[in-house]
Computed example of a mutant assay.
Amino acid sequence: MRINLGQSFRISMTIVGTTIGAGFASGREIWEFFGSYGEEGRYGIFLSMALYFAASVIILHIGWKKRTHHYSEVLQEVIGPKLARYFDGFVILSLLTGVLVMVAGSGATLEQWNGSFTLGTLLMAVAVVLVLFFDLRGIMSLNTLLMPVLTAILILVCFQALGSGGETAGLVEPEPENSLFPVWPSAITYAAFNMISLLAVLSTMGSQIRHPAEIWIASLLGASCLAVIAGLYNASLLKVSHLISQYNIPLFALIRDYSTTWNLIISLVLWFAIYTTAVSNMHGLVFRVAHRFPYPRWAVGLVIMAALVPLSQWGFVPLVQFLYPLYGVLNLFLFTLFLLYPFSEER
């Protein structure tokens, strides 16, 4: 059976699109998990992406071997039916809140341009539901189209920041806030932090894979792309570390001297990064619960969005500060079980 390189590329871009959400694209996650550790942060990025590669291979391999349709089937394979029932509820809640945060992030992005927060949330809700009309092919096509463009723009901004001289000349830059601590716990936490979204979307792709080599190619390409972007982003943010505290979105510290047109383009990049993650989370959620209802998947997604949009009025920053730490320990536990799966699998 021949290897479909095009399919590998589409899956790899889905991995990238699932990860590059509001936190990654804005630079906030990169700074908090890696940049705040100084030059050691680059080693943390390498470790985190190596773990990310391993998790992607494991999830895709289980999906291909078992022909899974949603994440619950993968969970049962890794941790057993009894424990999977408990974690199933946790994953559903994580995906719901993940979509909620992305919807609020869309409102916050529009607010940056003196627009309406509510209009921003409604725009995201409609855009996410539209993709559900096309099921799995829709999300893969979306990421294949958007990710190369978004990646190119982020890399261009990073190269511009790294190539600009004199911006920090004469300044005594403060030591990064976490420079006295080892970076590896943060690197592991970051990989685990993204575990749920990755599991939700990749577990639905088992039937799309025709050759096991596609799994390795897609995972390596996806993790490598993320590593390059994160590495360049981290190096760029370190150049303006003295300015990070002045910006809620560190990316704007890199483009502070850009024209209004470029600031608008970067804002659109942020919005689409939020969008791809929201689509991935909603996709995994709808595939999990749709079989319980006699309605098409887009209708189930519409009902979910109708419930989440009012809740998003709580605000983007409060949601991130409250919800993200809440899932930290459980994510680490689940991530560890997945990494140990190849060593415990019965052959």
Rank of each mutant, 00 (worst) to 15 (best):
F46R: 08
K66S: 02
Y37P: 00
Y258H: 06
L162Q: 10
I255N: 00
F333L: 13
G80W: 12
F252W: 14
V183P: 00
A253E: 06
Y71L: 04
L340R: 01
W298T: 08
G138F: 14
I45L: 08
K239M: 14
F338H: 01
A22K: 06
Y341M: 01
F133H: 12
H70F: 02
I196M: 14
I155S: 01
G80Y: 10
I11W: 03
L95C: 03
F134C: 01
A299S: 08
F134P: 03
M1C: 06
S344I: 11
I188W: 15
G231E: 12
C225T: 15
V78C: 01
Y247D: 06
A235E: 15
S26Y: 05
A169N: 05
L264D: 12
G138D: 15
E32P: 00
L132Q: 13
N114Y: 12
S26Q: 07
G98M: 06
P325Q: 02
P176R: 07
L123E: 03
I139T: 05
S312N: 04
S94T: 15
E346C: 00
E39R: 09
G222R: 13
V16T: 03
L220Y: 03
C158R: 03
L75M: 13
E32S: 08
F90K: 00
A223N: 13
E40I: 15
L254F: 13
L334R: 03
L95Y: 11
W298Y: 13
T276W: 09
R210G: 08
H291F: 15
F316Q: 00
M282Y: 02
S164N: 07
H69L: 10
T97F: 15
C225N: 08
L95G: 06
M1S: 11
Y295F: 12
G231H: 08
M102I: 09
T97I: 12
I11T: 02
A213C: 01
L60H: 09
G105F: 11
V183L: 02
S56H: 09
I92C: 05
L226I: 03
A191S: 12
H69Q: 09
G120S: 11
L132F: 12
A253V: 09
L156R: 00
P212T: 09
T189I: 11
L330V: 13
F133R: 07
G284Y: 06
N234G: 00
A306F: 15
F333C: 06
Y341K: 00
E32N: 06
V131L: 03
S179P: 02
V16Y: 10
A200W: 11
V320I: 13
H291D: 00
L154K: 03
L119S: 13
A50R: 05
V128F: 01
I215F: 10
L146G: 03
W184S: 06
L198A: 11
V91S: 07
P325M: 05
P250Y: 14
V101W: 13
W113V: 00
Y295I: 04
P81W: 11
L5T: 04
I139D: 05
G115N: 07
N248Q: 10
S72A: 14
L268K: 00
